[in-house]
């Protein structure tokens, strides 16, 4: 356990080493926030609500979703490249579990990102962009729980896709496709309630809405009461399912590597 904590710690240190990159990133997030804000301001200019959502509710949803999406994508890229350039062989010679190590490093990344990026920008959004707090403290707590689960699901999905690097050559295509599917189906771009009925029914059976839509919908009050608890329940099912799938696929991949030599 100690070694994984150390990995997380070192990763935070690495982050500190790239401060120019960090500021550039923060700046681009700030720009995106402004674009979103003025876009929706224009949309709402001659109406007061869309599908029952007020302007404040919509900006709150979009901005919280934007932050959450950044935490949802995990360490897939790192894993995929380790596999592709063959360094996975060296990793396998070490007395640790590679996936656990990557997740530990990812946690380190995200802690730093939360402190240096999401928190200050979030406060900025509250002060200047009409982003509101959750309506009740219960939905606030449930949001935190649901958001953590969403991050968990997103990370595992990311890793699952990355393991496919053992079989495919076109990594880049896979990454782009995953990115597109996730941002569309997860509700990171717009709340899923804006989509047609049939689309919402389909996404109910996919893991993507559990990544972003469910937690943010709980935050903004789209999902409340029993509905909210049911959604969190389905998140739990996805989390367990993806965890199991990841373990199976990883052990299949390991067999392939150790038998065919990568």
């Amino acid at each position: 356990m100690r070694k994984y904590i150390e990995f997380a710690r070192v990763q935070m240190q690495v982050h500190a080493a790239y401060s120019a990159w960090f500021w550039a990133n923060t700046f681009s997030v700030l720009l995106r926030m402004l674009v979103i804000y003025f876009f929706w301001k224009a949309v709402y200019s001659n109406r007061s609500e869309i599908e029952g959502m007020s302007f404040d509710g919509m900006t709150t949803y979009i901005i919280i979703a934007m932050f959450l999406q950044m935490f949802v994508s995990g360490v897939g890229r790192e894993l995929a490249h380790t596999i592709k350039d063959g360094n996975v062989a060296i990793e396998l010679m070490r007395p640790y579990h590679l996936i656990t190590r990557l997740i530990a490093m990812d946690i380190g990344d995200k802690v730093i990102y939360f402190i240096r990026g999401a928190l200050p920008l979030g406060i900025l959004a509250f002060v200047f962009m009409d982003v509101t707090l959750p309506s009740t403290w219960q939905s606030g707590v449930l949001f935190l729980l649901s958001a953590l689960m969403g991050i968990w699901i997103g990370t595992f999905f990311d890793l699952l896709i990355a393991i496919l690097a053992f079989w495919t050559i076109n990594l880049w295509g896979l990454e782009v496709m995953k990115e597109a599917v996730v941002s569309f189906f997860s509700g990171a771009l717009v709340p899923l309630i804006l989509f047609p009925e049939w689309f919402q029914t389909i996404s109910l059976f996919l893991p993507f809405q559990a990544m972003v839509y469910v937690p943010v919908a709980i935050y903004t009050g789209i999902l409340t009461g029993t509905e909210a608890w049911l959604a969190v329940g389905s998140q739990l099912i996805w989390a367990v399912l993806l965890f199991g799938l990841l373990r199976v696929l990883w052990s299949v991949a390991m067999k392939k590597v150790t038998i065919f030599g990568g």
């Binding site: 070694k3 150390e6 990995f7």
Partner: peptide
């Protein structure tokens, strides 16, 4: 990305 000494510290834990 990290200094050599930190690498060794990490290996100590690993």
């Amino acid at each position: 990305d990290i200094p050599v000494r930190e690498s060794y510290e990490l290996l100590k834990h690993i």
